[in-house]
C-alpha cells in the first residue's frame, strides 16, 4: 500500500507542478506576444506646432487641419507704451492667421497671412514641415524635423529706389525664405527642449544689411500641470550686419503660458519682437527688452479633423 500511496502522491504532485508551471507560462506567453515597441515612441514633446516664435517638432497629424491665430499687441512700456496706449492694447501690431494641414503624420504643409506693424510685414507665407527622426525611449534620443518656407508680400511697390518696398526692379524682391533644422528632446514628463539652426534669406535688404542670416534658436516647455505649461524661446542671430548694428538690432525673446482646454490650445505670452514670420522678426527686431518694449500677445490653435482615421 505504501508503494501505491507514493506513486499516487508523486503523480498528483507532478500534475500540480505542471499546471502551476503552465499558469505562470500564461502571463509570460502573453508578454512575449505583446509588442512593447508600440510603447517606445515618445509622444507629445510639445503641445502644439509652435511655441512663441519658434516652431516645434510636433506635426499636424494626417488628415487634420490646425487653424491658428497669433496676435501681438504694442509695447507695454517704453516710448510707444504706457497708460496712454493702455499698455500696448491700443496698438494691435501683428496678427497672423494660418492653416496647417497634415498630409501624412510626418509631413505637413501650411499657409498663412500676416498683418504687421510696418510696411514690409504684410505677407503671405507658405511653409512645410517634415519629420526626419522620431525620439524613442529605447533608441534614437532625439526628434528631428525640417521646417522651411517662404513669405511673399502683395503690397504695392513704392517705386522709390531706396525704399525697402520698391519692387519695380524685380518681383523676386517680394520673396523671403527661411529654413530650420528642429532638434528636440523630451527629457521627462514635464520638460522638453528644442534647438534649431536657422537660415533666413531675404532677396531685398537695406544697404549694409545681409541677405542671408544665420541663427540658432532655442526653446523649451515646462509642464506645471497636465494641461498647463510655461513656454519660452530665444533666437540668437550669428551674423549681425552693420545695418543691424546701426539700427540697434535685438534678439527676439518670448515667454508664455500655455493652456490646453480639450480642443484649443491657448498661449498667453510676452515677446519683444514685432513680426511673426522668421524672415521678419529675426533680422528686423529692434524692440529692447530692458527698455520695456515687451508686448503682450496670444496664440490660439484649434485642430479640426478633416479626414477621419479608421
Amino acid at each position: 500500500m505504501n508503494c501505491f500511496k507514493i506513486i499516487l502522491l508523486s503523480g498528483i504532485l507532478l500534475l500540480g507542478m505542471r499546471l502551476a508551471a503552465q499558469d505562470d507560462e500564461l502571463a509570460s506567453l502573453v508578454n512575449s506576444q505583446t509588442d512593447s515597441t508600440i510603447d517606445d515612441k515618445v509622444i507629445a514633446s510639445f503641445k502644439t506646432t509652435r511655441l512663441i516664435n519658434l516652431t516645434t517638432i510636433e506635426q499636424v497629424k494626417r488628415g487634420e487641419l490646425d487653424f491658428r491665430i497669433a496676435h501681438r499687441f504694442g509695447d507695454i512700456a517704453g516710448s510707444a507704451g504706457g497708460a496712454s496706449t493702455f499698455f500696448g492694447f491700443d496698438n494691435v501690431s501683428d496678427i497672423r492667421f494660418s492653416f496647417d494641414y497634415g498630409i501624412f503624420d510626418v509631413w505637413q504643409i501650411g499657409i498663412g497671412r500676416s498683418k504687421g506693424g510696418y510696411s514690409t510685414s504684410q505677407v503671405f507665407d507658405l511653409n512645410s514641415k517634415f519629420k526626419l527622426a522620431q525620439q524613442k525611449k529605447n533608441g534614437f534620443p532625439l526628434a528631428i524635423s525640417l521646417f522651411g518656407g517662404l513669405t511673399f508680400t502683395s503690397m504695392q511697390s513704392s517705386g522709390v529706389l531706396s525704399d525697402i518696398n520698391n519692387f519695380n526692379r524685380s518681383t523676386a524682391h517680394r520673396f523671403n525664405y527661411f529654413g530650420q533644422i528642429l532638434i528636440a528632446r523630451k527629457m521627462n514628463d514635464q520638460f522638453s527642449f528644442i534647438i534649431a539652426p536657422t537660415i533666413v534669406h531675404r532677396n531685398l535688404v537695406f544697404l549694409g544689411d545681409n541677405n542671408t542670416h544665420f541663427a540658432i534658436a532655442a526653446g523649451a516647455r515646462f509642464k506645471i500641470s497636465k494641461r498647463a505649461a510655461i513656454i519660452a524661446d530665444y533666437y540668437q542671430v550669428l551674423n549681425v550686419s552693420n545695418f543691424q548694428k546701426l539700427i540697434g538690432h535685438q534678439m527676439p525673446i518670448g515667454l508664455g503660458f500655455e493652456l490646453e482646454t480639450g480642443g484649443h490650445v491657448f498661449h498667453a505670452l510676452f515677446s519683444t519682437n514685432t513680426g511673426l514670420m522668421e524672415s521678419q522678426f529675426l533680422p528686423n527686431n529692434t524692440a529692447k527688452f530692458t527698455a520695456g518694449q515687451v508686448r503682450f500677445g496670444f496664440n490660439i490653435s484649434r485642430v479640426f479633423t478633416i479626414i477621419k482615421d479608421k
Partner: peptide, 16 residues
C-alpha cells in the same frame, strides 16, 4: 485567462 494590451496601441478617430 490572461489579456494584456499596450495603451499606446489604441487608435482614435482624432489624433488629438
Amino acid at each position: 485567462i490572461f489579456f494584456k494590451v499596450m495603451m499606446k496601441s489604441f487608435k482614435f478617430e482624432k489624433a488629438l
